[in-house]
């Protein structure tokens, strides 16, 4: 069976000044997502998470361009599709939830209009069927008295409600994948937790797959099956949440876990000394070496290859090594760790 989403060697660059400045925001990203699965993507600001998502739906802001690799969605190659063809994928098959709930809603249109659009354009619903669909969606995201609320406007809603409406918009076209780009960053702690529970519940009901971009590893522990850690345009370590939380192989993953904030804390993952590199002028060798506490001499000159640790677990580090097959019993402790991690937030 083909995976729902298979991204191979994706490269997306921002080229400016007539080609003089090339920001390699996404440089060789690969990952696979199955139907109904949740992938967490973490990494400091500016490492290419948003660009990866925008590339998937082929909506990179200028001067961004996909320069290489492939994106197969349900077996169809998206990088070769025209904008017109992509329009039937966006909102219908792949929906996105953006960070800022107030700014994501058009102030001049009613909630009904905004929630109904994906259903109108992608599912050809009209009239009473459309109203019924919007009411169901608002119900599903727990908007009280939806029949009345859908006649209102964004400014009449609280921040948490607006975020849930953005969630309803994402669901409206009946997508198979939702990409949520830091969807809770601007919400306060209790609302954040409620929102995450709601997303999880909706996922259980609809079987939609989710890519969850976040700064917060507490959220990853609570929400995700798999985790990809990004640094300087590359996925430096990927595997199941269990594997990475229990025995991270990449020093950057270790550092992120070491600086893990509590769920709901506004604090960003910036406790790692130093800054991420400028993606237009990457250092030679491993991009992390100037900040890496475990750097080897080779790290400054040669880029580490992707090492397969075990199964789908991989790491880009000279220190990473394939794991012996016999060591499978590690999973029992890791389950404990995840619960500990999730408990931090509760």
């Amino acid at each position: 069976m083909t995976a729902l989403l298979e991204v191979r060697d994706l490269q997306a660059h921002y080229v400016s000044f007539g080609g003089e400045r090339v920001v390699k925001a996404v440089e060789g990203v690969s990952f696979t997502l199955e139907e109904g699965e949740t992938l967490g993507v973490v990494g400091e600001s500016g490492c290419g998470k948003t660009t990866t998502c925008q590339a998937i739906v082929n909506l990179l802001p200028p001067p961004g361009r996909i320069v290489g690799g492939s994106i197969a969605f349900a077996g169809e190659e998206l990088t070769r599709k025209s904008q017109r063809e992509m329009r039937h994928i966006r909102g219908a098959q792949i929906a996105m939830i953006l960070q800022d709930p107030m700014a994501s809603l058009n102030p001049l249109f009613s909630i009904y209009r905004q929630v109904s659009e994906p259903a109108y354009y992608h599912r050809a619903l009209r009239g009473r069927g459309l109203r019924e669909r919007v009411r169901e969606l608002l119900n599903a995201v727990r908007i009280p008295s939806p029949a009345m609320r859908m006649r209102e406007y964004p400014h009449q809603m609280s921040g948490g409600m607006r975020q849930r409406i953005v969630g309803a918009i994402a669901l409206a076209g009946g997508p198979r994948l939702i990409i949520a780009d830091e969807p809770t960053t601007n919400l306060d702690v209790t609302i954040q937790a409620q929102y995450l529970d709601l997303l999880k519940e909706l996922q259980d009901k609809t079987g939609v797959a989710i890519i969850f971009i976040t700064h917060n590893l507490g959220i990853v522990a609570r929400m995700c099956d798999k985790l990809a850690v990004m640094y300087a345009g590359k996925i430096v370590e990927a595997g199941t949440v269990r594997e990475l939380f229990n025995a991270p192989r990449h020093p950057y993953t270790k550092a992120l876990l070491g600086s893990m904030p509590k769920l709901g804390s506004k604090e960003k993952l910036l406790a790692i000394p130093g800054h991420p590199p400028d993606l237009a002028t990457l250092p030679p060798g491993c991009a992390f070496h100037p900040r890496c506490p475990e750097a080897l001499p080779t790290c400054a000159t040669a880029e580490p290859p992707e090492i397969q640790v075990i199964g789908s677990w991989s790491a880009r580090c000279w220190r990473a090594e394939p794991q012996e097959i016999s060591a499978t019993d590690a999973t029992t402790d890791s389950a404990k760790d995840i619960h500990a991690a999730a408990a931090v937030g509760d």
Binding site: R90, A95, M96
Partner: peptide
Amino acid sequence: RSEYIKLARLKGLPGYVVIAVHAFKN
């Protein structure tokens, strides 16, 4: 440049709806 126009595109609305309705009215 606004987020709601980004979202309008992400919804897969036809280009003329994004420009002539969502953007132009604002």
